[in-house]
Design a protein around this nucleic acid. Structure first.
Lengths: 253, 253
DNA sequence: CGAAGGCTTGACGGTATTCAAGCATAGTGG
DNA sequence: CCACTATGCTTGAATACCGTCAAGCCTTCG
């Protein structure tokens, strides 16, 4: 199998797993296991990778790209629960260890390493830091979800959208050394609405308000520039440094 | 599924941890570790156990009682993210492994076993099935949160309230052998509203509608009887058997 | 150049919040 | 035993927020 481009996770052949993960200070490990196999897969933007309710006990390590984890109602309305970015590890199964809790959609071109759960358990056992890494990613997921949950239940649309922009800013920073105030989101207004719990029309109006107040500017299908972090943090009712430590695994460590 | 017999987790003395956990088929283990210490603590109903944003790297094993995990906005509005029931294990810290993501409040009298994180890591290493148990509880949490997130973003109040009642029914069944259709919820309408994302007034109106349609009856401060599961599942837009397997760790195993 | 997809804006209506008042219940102390 | 209080439930009225529908516009791409 071929090495992945940024050399994040590399399966040299059927007998060696060369594991390097950029988060948590750069977890690095090399294993030799005749049984452990990871499939390296590429998906094009827009493709559906996994389906809510279908059987899937695999583990997905995101090497490259944006994935949306979503659930839908009968009437076709979709809620995006979370986005997975490079460095994230997904365990889509529910408590039965089999049925996928959500659907997974590629929002950019995506590279994944996929492990079968039995192989993943071996990896976890043999790379001591891997379980710490998974715990850290889980805690980050957990913290993000909680912040958004609070704002879904008790906040309004401006608050949710402002929070989402700040969350993207922090997470993209944690992925790579990009400036915090300028980044691209591979989403349409409709999909941003599905994420924050608002209609596309309302997203449009709210972003328009932000732009009229010179808090952000957004051009060219979601090239975001944040001009006024304090104003955005105030609308989102978030403490930005505190958010950073709670969702950035391995921040300054 | 073995019934819980009261003795769930027992720390005999400073040198022995006698670990019996009712979920996942009844995980049982006995350890001898001079270093591992669990504090057994009792809290009265209404007391605040942990504070959002405060330092806490401990692990809480719920032996008895209901705990609410919540977050609040500046204006005093509170969102309950989840409830922890007997058999649950809480890792309140975010990605920094230190700061608590939510506040924890006792809604009944509560018994906890509390481990320091270093001790917990030892336990995890020495009881192989414990990490599977934690993974199963995490997957259940994850599945519950996702269902509620979908309904927060794309559902209305009746849907969220109906879902909450069914989730309580399934979870309480998984705790002990109680009938699925009759149980008590130690919450006021205000707190149920903080859980589902609705005002107490609207909870009152919506429960009133359910009762007028003979779908449930609720007396005596939240003694719930579900008369019409199909109707409730239809309002909640949930497939009850599917919900059961995705949030009940060790269901039929 | 036309078609497709996405963004913007206005109008309207439904759902849920807030405020407020009255009622029910349980617990307390004389 | 009966006020008296505290707490929570119920109901109505007014209002805010946001979703839906619909039309027009803009950009991209074949």
């Amino acid at each position: 199998m071929s090495p992945s481009n940024g050399l994040v996770l590399k399966v040299a052949d059927r007998n060696a797993v060369n594991f390097y993960w950029p988060l948590m200070g750069g977890l690095k490990s090399e294993l030799f296991h005749s049984e452990i196999v990871s499939k390296l897969r590429h998906y094009y933007s827009g493709s559906e990778i996994d389906y809510e309710g279908h059987d899937n006990s695999g583990i997905f390590c995101v090497l490259e790209g944006w994935l949306a984890l979503s659930k839908s109602l009968e009437n076709g309305h979709t809620q995006i629960i979370d986005f997975a970015l490079p460095g994230d590890i997904l365990l889509p199964a529910g408590a039965d260890e089999l049925t996928s809790v959500y659907s997974i959609t590629a929002h950019t071109d995506v590279h994944l390493a996929i492990f079968r759960s039995a192989d993943w358990e071996k990896l976890i056992r043999d790379i001591p830091d891997l379980s710490k890494l998974v715990a850290g990613l889980g805690a980050s997921y957990h913290a993000r979800i909680s912040e958004r949950f609070l704002r879904m239940g008790k906040g309004n649309a401006p608050m949710r959208i402002a929070y989402a922009l700040l969350e993207f800013s922090v997470r993209l920073q944690s992925q790579k050394m990009i400036p915090a105030n300028s980044f691209h989101i591979p989403l349409r207004q409709k999909q941003l609405g599905d994420f924050v719990g608002a209609s596309s029309v309302h997203v449009c109006r709210t972003l328009g308000d932000f732009m009229r107040h010179s808090i952000v500017s957004i051009n060219n299908h979601m090239d975001v520039q944040i001009h006024d972090f304090p104003a955005l943090a105030n609308i989102a009712k978030i403490n930005l440094p505190q958010l950073t430590v709670s969702i950035w695994p391995g921040w300054r460590q």
